Simulated scan of single mutants.
Amino acid sequence: MDAPSSTPSRQGPPGTTVVLADDHLVVRAGMRLLLAQDPAFQIVAESATVPDTLDAVRRTRPRVLVLDLTMAGQSSLPMIPELLTVSPGTRILVLTMQEDPAFAREALRTGAAGYLLKEAAAEELRAAVHQVAGGATYVQPVLGARLAVETPGPVDQETLTAREAEVLSLLALGHTNQEIAQRLYVSVRTVETHRARIRDKLGKDTRAELIAAARERGLVT
């Protein structure tokens, strides 16, 4: 896999329409304020849940969707392909607190055009939106470097995929297989498969062991 571009671009198409998707009102307000400082951006909608985001994208067909990975307890990762189906011209920039490269890798694999941490400076957010709007890929430099050098494989049995990490965090929080399936829009059998893989990789299966493993990886507090 080639390393994604991470050089900020100051140029972007004029009148770039943007949808902001985050379940925290304060975060959305901050993003709106930052992007409003650039006349190239036009905020056309905001959303706080995965279903509302899908509706907003279908309705407005924005050039850029700034997307949080988890909203109202639901993962937005599984929805990326559907978001691109309802609006093929939309470029998705993931903005998240999740710094595990596995999540960045999965987001890019499913169709996201960029991945940025919420700790990024204001100027970097604007540059990232410009870059993905212009058709390029943007990954925060620190993550881009890790993606370029990390190659998960069978040698590292403790390396979890982004989806396995999601399942682990939900298991650690006490959710049943059925509840996890509903949250992730997958079948119970799929959850059971992920759980089996987690058990094989980590050698842990009891709730206490899963909580400990999730805490070690920063997936739960």
Rank of each mutant, 00 (worst) to 15 (best):
E166W: 05
A102S: 10
V155S: 12
Q178D: 11
L77N: 04
L108D: 00
L93Q: 02
L116P: 01
E164F: 05
V132T: 01
R109A: 03
H130E: 00
T159S: 15
A128V: 15
S76D: 03
E166H: 05
V142A: 05
L95T: 11
L125Q: 09
G134T: 12
V149R: 12
V167T: 10
V142S: 12
I180L: 08
A112G: 01
M71L: 15
L160V: 13
L69C: 12
Q178Y: 13
T110R: 08
P81L: 11
G144N: 09
S75K: 01
S169E: 13
E158L: 14
L77D: 08
A102V: 15
P88S: 13
P81S: 07
V149F: 08
A107H: 02
Q182W: 09
L171W: 05
L143P: 01
V139A: 03
A133P: 12
E150N: 13
V139F: 03
N177Q: 07
P78A: 05
I180P: 04
L143D: 00
A113L: 01
P141S: 11
V149L: 11
L77P: 02
G134E: 00
Q74C: 14
L69P: 03
R183V: 09
L95G: 02
S87Y: 06
A122M: 08
A102M: 03
T90S: 05
E99T: 12
L170T: 13
L95C: 09
A136E: 02
A107M: 13
A162C: 03
N177R: 14
R109I: 08
R146T: 15
P78W: 05
V94C: 00
V155G: 10
H175W: 07
T161R: 15
E106F: 09
P141W: 10
T110L: 12
E124K: 10
F103T: 07
K118D: 14
H130T: 11
E158G: 10
Q157Y: 15
E123S: 07
